[in-house]
Nucleic acid binder design. Structure first.
Lengths: 219, 219
DNA sequence: GCTAAATTACTGACTGGTCAGTTATTAACG
DNA sequence: CGTTAATAACTGACCAGTCAGTAATTTAGC
């Protein structure tokens, strides 16, 4: 072996970038295979480092998991909250912006696997789940709830059970994101996202339409 | 230690009952912890046998997983198909029977964890996922699709994208089932099922209501 | 500017524990 | 007693976590 030839890896020192590269690799693998089935050697390799390096930045596999969750989604929720503040009157447009924004900013990005990961692992990591519930789910519910309430106040939406319906409304988006990271891999030709979103939003708007209140409302 | 005293386990021979007891135990643990994180010793203990006994009935951990999926849900789908055949005219009642029937027969039973398990493990077991897709999901979609189509034909429902909407309609039920087997454990006081189902069905019926068709339909 | 010493990011072989799968043995039942 | 369901001790592969050592970079001395 002489000086020439393809050296396998040039071994760069990039202390700043490492943690993000590692959490990105970990997210992809945790989503694909699940937490327990993911090997840290694999995470490190995907980030272009050795396993030892991983342990320079994270204390344990569980710490890596927590970092994946905490650094990932919270900023997006904050964007959503900013949107709500500044948004002009129309509640239909607001609700559309929130729901489609969720899809564009979370569902249709690398973060789209986070819901699958959290549903899968919530019972194995109750503290992380509690944090996620408080920092992401609860605040996301609030966004939708406020948009719906605004619509009801303005007479654009029917009177519905606001606390409950926000969970109903997010369901089809979650379903689409889950699908993409599970069955989509093995079932070609299913779930065209654009068509799905249009169909979904069309039904939601009709379901909320103030014009079509059919039966007696409780006062 | 003499002959008397609490013998740990009387060691009964019950060849007939074992497989079902083992798959039931495995289902519960796979759903709770995930496939990879579930130990076979634990499955066996929960079924009241030793690990060796498990291997008398299943060739491998993966074979046990397949058995859990295949034996579990298919019969219920068949019940649903029978329902569709015999059901009298009213499409609203039919759709309600299918959706609420799903909740009563699957979502709200031990089988309610199967969707979580399949979403989690689909990419790790593509063949099982393909089977499940064909034997359960596809046939479930068809049930809903036919109910919707019947409603459209009778002028009770709006003209909607039938192929897509069946996935939208099942989403809130899946969401509720997933929730029960994930965050529900660590977040007390959330997702009252009865209220959720009523709110959901109310919105669906308004979303499909022929009376409220608002904008131009394509011919 | 050049070299040597000091620092620090990084590596990969190693360890100890865990767990899927096996096998020798035991006990139930006819 | 013979058959077989069931067990429990065993094995070997695998993997999270460790650490002695190496390579890149910075600093000090000249």
């Amino acid at each position: 072996m002489t000086v020439v030839g393809a050296r396998a890896a040039p071994r760069r020192r990039r202390k700043q970038a490492r943690p993000q590269e590692l959490t990105a690799a970990a997210l992809a693998l945790f989503v694909e295979k699940g937490f327990a089935a993911t090997r840290l050697d694999e995470v490190a390799a995907r980030a272009g480092v050795s396993k030892g390096t991983l342990y320079l930045y994270f204390d344990s596999k569980e710490a890596l998991f927590k970092a994946v969750i905490t650094e990932g989604v919270v900023p997006v929720i904050e964007q959503g909250e900013a949107l709500l503040e500044e948004f002009p009157g129309d509640p239909v447009a607001l609700l559309r912006a929130i729901l489609f924004g969720w899809w564009e900013r979370i569902g249709n990005t690398e973060l789209g696997g986070v819901p699958k990961l959290m549903f899968s692992e919530a019972r194995n990591f109750p503290e992380v789940a509690a944090y996620y519930h408080e920092a992401v789910i609860h605040r996301g519910q609030r966004l939708i709830r406020l948009a719906i309430s605004r619509g009801i106040d303005q007479g654009v939406f029917r009177r519905v059970d606001v606390d409950t319906i926000c969970n109903v409304l997010i369901s089809p988006l979650l379903h689409l994101a889950l699908w993409r990271h599970s069955f989509a891999s093995c079932c070609a030709r299913d779930m065209d996202a654009e068509r799905y979103l249009e169909c979904y939003f069309d039904m939601v708007m009709n379901g909320l339409g103030a014009a079509s209140a059919p039966s007696g409302d409780q006062p």
